[in-house]
Write a protein that binds this DNA or RNA. Structure first.
Length: 406
DNA sequence: AGGTATTCACATGAAACTATTCTCTGAGTTAGG
DNA sequence: TAACTCAGAGAATAGTTTCATGTGAATACCTGT
């Protein structure tokens, strides 16, 4: 045993693969952002007026995940702040830029919490709950207006937030300036969803997206370049086998040019190679990484789902196994789910709710769902599992463990 | 045959309810001067 | 009299339930030829 352990530790000790793994992690911010020069220039020209103390247009950034939106805006934020420090002189109005990701767990997805988080970032104190939203607004205004300044609010993944909150939130945001006397606020929204603004009140839309910038996906060649630069820093020389980078890029290009995904692939492939004790990252490690990422993502979701979701999912998996992958319907799931609940002495949710849960699994990509009508046979969702057998097995096991099943 | 009307089995939407968590307020209690 | 405690009122949220209404197409039911 000891010998084995030592062997494992040794192999990690004389790490032959990684030089600096953090370069491949998603929070790493490179000095250069390749292939985004155009967007950054646009951003800069739109935002530059703040340096002269003029109000900027509100701005909206679009682009799929992993197209460098966040990276670019953060880069520009730093540059602007640097520059405004430089320009600072008597009587000039200070510039403040705050970045907030609306999707983070602690921010969750309520108007209240977004504001509270902003207040905290601005140095105020506010409790997590219990106060009327009104109070939080007032506090926010008070703190922003306590001294004169320019404030740029960067709201990342704002579409996620608005999905949950009513779009009144956006309306309130756009009106904020009229409530403030000494401070000017500019809003920069970031959204993954290109159609996001379609369903929004036109007045809000026009004032919120006075300017828009679209971040197109990277193509395979651009991805390769990005990967090459990073891999030079991340790995020791010569460990990346010929074609590995190309393959990573190709995988990610297929997924709407998601650079984050490509970097993840490369990193996980490196980790797999390391664990294998291999001296090089081979093509097969990429395939392994692809599977592993997918698997971890899904299993992680399953683990964190609440009890009732797990019962429903277990039912879905059981039925799917019985049906040999043939699609089945809402009613089947509900019946099975009822049995499961009764057997486990758990309360039984209504069909209405279970329907919603099924839909949420669809959104998570665990199942595929389609509403079909079978004429007189009724109208229901056709359900198919969207994950491979090895994952369902594991998922079932996890659920049974965590629920003390049956 | 061709055209309506029905009907099934849910989907989808809105509103209301429940339990929990948190703040704030003010009454009552306590300890120190 | 100041400091402390503690119950009760209000708010917000997540997760539901209840009630109401909507839906796509296979089938049943007509209709006139």
């Amino acid at each position: 045993m000891k010998a084995e352990l030592n062997k494992i530790f040794d192999s990690f000790d004389n790490n032959r693969i990684f030089n600096d793994k953090s370069v491949l992690q998603s929070n790493y911010r490179p000095d250069e952002i390749p292939h985004r020069e155009e967007q950054i220039k646009q951003l800069a020209s739109i935002l530059a007026p703040v340096l002269r103390g003029e109000k900027t247009s509100n701005l909206f950034l679009y682009g799929k995940t992993g197209t460098g939106k966040t990276l670019s805006i953060l880069y520009l934020k730093d540059e602007l702040i640097k520059r405004s420090k430089l320009n600072e002189k008597e009587g000039s109005i200070p510039l403040n830029i705050e970045y907030l990701n609306c999707k983070l767990k602690k921010v969750s997805d309520t108007e209240y919490r977004i504001l509270a988080e902003l207040i905290r970032k601005l140095g105020g104190k506010i409790s997590d709950t219990g106060l009327p939203t009104e109070t939080v607004y007032n506090k926010f205004i008070e703190i922003v207006d306590s001294k004169s300044q320019f404030l740029l609010l960067i709201l990342d993944e704002i579409d996620q937030a608005v999905k949950k909150i009513s779009s009144d939130f956006l309306y309130n945001l756009t009106r904020l300036n009229s409530e403030l006397s000494r401070t000017q606020i500019g809003i920069i929204g970031i959204s993954n969803d290109l159609t996001f603004l379609d369903g929004i009140d036109p007045r809000v839309r026009s004032s919120l997206s006075e300017e828009e910038i679209v971040f197109p996906p990277y193509n395979a060649i651009q991805l390769q370049e990005i990967l090459n630069t990073r891999s030079k820093m991340a790995f020791k020389p010569g460990v990346v086998e010929e074609g590995v980078v190309q393959k990573c890029a190709a995988f990610a290009a297929r997924e709407h040019g998601d650079a984050r995904r490509a970097l993840d692939l490369l990193r996980v492939a490196g980790e797999l190679a390391e664990r294998d004790g291999a001296s090089k990252i081979l093509l097969k490690h990429i395939d392994g990484a692809n599977v592993k990422i997918e698997r971890d993502k899904i299993l992680d979701v399953i683990k964190t789902e609440p009890k009732q979701f797990q019962y429903v999912l277990h039912s879905i998996i059981s039925i799917s196994e019985k049906n040999n992958g043939e699609p089945f319907f809402t009613g089947d799931v509900y019946n099975h789910y009822q049995d499961v609940c009764l057997k486990n002495n758990s309360e039984v949710l209504t069909q209405r709710r279970v329907g919603d849960i099924i839909q949420e699994f669809d959104m998570l990509g665990i199942i595929n769902v389609r509403v079909i009508s079978k004429g007189r046979g009724g109208r229901m969702r056709e359900i198919k599992l969207a994950i491979s057998k090895s994952i369902t097995e594991k998922a079932k096991q996890i659920i049974e463990e965590s629920l003390d099943y049956r």
